[in-house]
Simulated assay, not measured.
Amino acid sequence: MKQLLFYIALIFSFSAQTQELKVGILRAYDLSAVRISYNEGTYNVYGDSTELTSIWSGQSIECKRSGDKIKLVKDDKTLGTFDTVYFRGVESGNSFRIRPTSPYSKKERKYKDNIMLIPSGNTEITVINEVMMENYLPGVIESEGGGGKHIEYYKVQAILSRTYVLDHLSKHRKDGFYLCDRQHCQAYHNMMRFTPDIQKAVNETAGIIMLDHQLELADGYFFANCGGQTSESDFVWNNPVPYCRSIVDTFCIRSWQANWTKKIPKSSWKNYLVQQFGYPVNDSIFGQYLYAFSQPNRKAFYIDPRLGIPLRDIRTEFKLKSTWFDCHLEGDNVVLEGKGFGHGVGLCQEGAMSMAKLGYSYEQILKFYFTDIQLFDYFHWLFLRQEEMVGL
């Protein structure tokens, strides 16, 4: 029985790695209607299990919520109303264009492979891109990191994104898909359009994943710029992540996002610290540091841990670029002089980009930012786990 369960898991994982992922797209909209148009190839259109029509160059179909079903309209002709609608490419290399029409958006997006639409809620449509892993990852990497980067950096992002997908296949199961297109999953705004090196990076790292010291899938946390030092994970989140330790990073310090300054009214600063945390303004020691704070290395708390004022809370309250800052008083303002942009845990994107330009490999970059991680072939990893799963 255990052996059977292993092979079922293996088949599911193989499907996730080499066949279609289900990704919820356009999740920023409460959609009740979309227009789906030709981009490349030919699509057959199905209402439930019935083939209805095809779309090719110059053609499109309007998909509208109608009662508890979805109505399809092509060339002003209603094709019917259905529980589920599918657009399936006839050959490989198909891609479609999609635009929200209710609510209306001028922005049109393009995606590869297939699409499914199902009713959701009382008036909405859920749109799911059924996309091959090798087509999904380039879209994510271009959405997250943009173009013009060194291919070794794109290889880093490919491995982090692939590992994330395989570790979060159940994140949106209740919604009918695996992952969505928003940042709390992975940004996925379009298929890859402008940067061929990204596709090359995905292909050249095919199947490679990142594992922690216990040979479990590792979360590849990343952010824009660390300012010269990454953060301990428990400075930002409640639980420590063993492979995300603070390191000194000089590769990002010349970037424009490495330093920042912000002025906050003295009264706002004082009121927040006193009202939220009971800052002892009259204390003979702590009172003099209310507006004066020095942080030569990253810390977790303002002034002193005994005061219980997490820097992450101050960052959220005043919308700061990072938790790494010094502050002093100038007139009626508290001046914050900070470093870095983002939560600071894991991989510094601008540092990694600089390392790639200097000739470091993707493996060297990942092992610089993450502690005691290993890079493995996905299927090799699955077979290593077989012994544990079958209890031999």
Rank of each mutant, 00 (worst) to 15 (best):
K2A: 12
S15N: 12
L21I: 01
I36W: 04
E40I: 01
Y43Q: 02
S54F: 02
S66H: 04
K71N: 11
K71A: 15
R88S: 06
S95A: 13
I98W: 01
R99Q: 15
T101S: 15
E108L: 08
N114Q: 08
I115E: 01
G121Q: 02
N122W: 06
E124T: 11
V127D: 02
E130C: 09
E134M: 08
G146H: 07
Q157N: 12
Q157S: 13
I159K: 04
V165T: 12
L166W: 10
H168I: 09
R173M: 06
D175E: 15
F177S: 03
H184C: 08
P196C: 11
V202Q: 02
T205R: 00
D212Q: 05
D249K: 02
T250G: 10
I253D: 07
Q257W: 05
K270T: 14
Y279V: 07
V281W: 01
F286G: 01
G287T: 09
A292G: 00
I303R: 02
L307I: 06
I309A: 02
R312F: 11
F318N: 03
K319R: 02
K319D: 15
D326P: 01
D332K: 02
V334T: 08
L336W: 03
S354P: 00
F370T: 09
F376T: 10
R385F: 14
R385W: 14
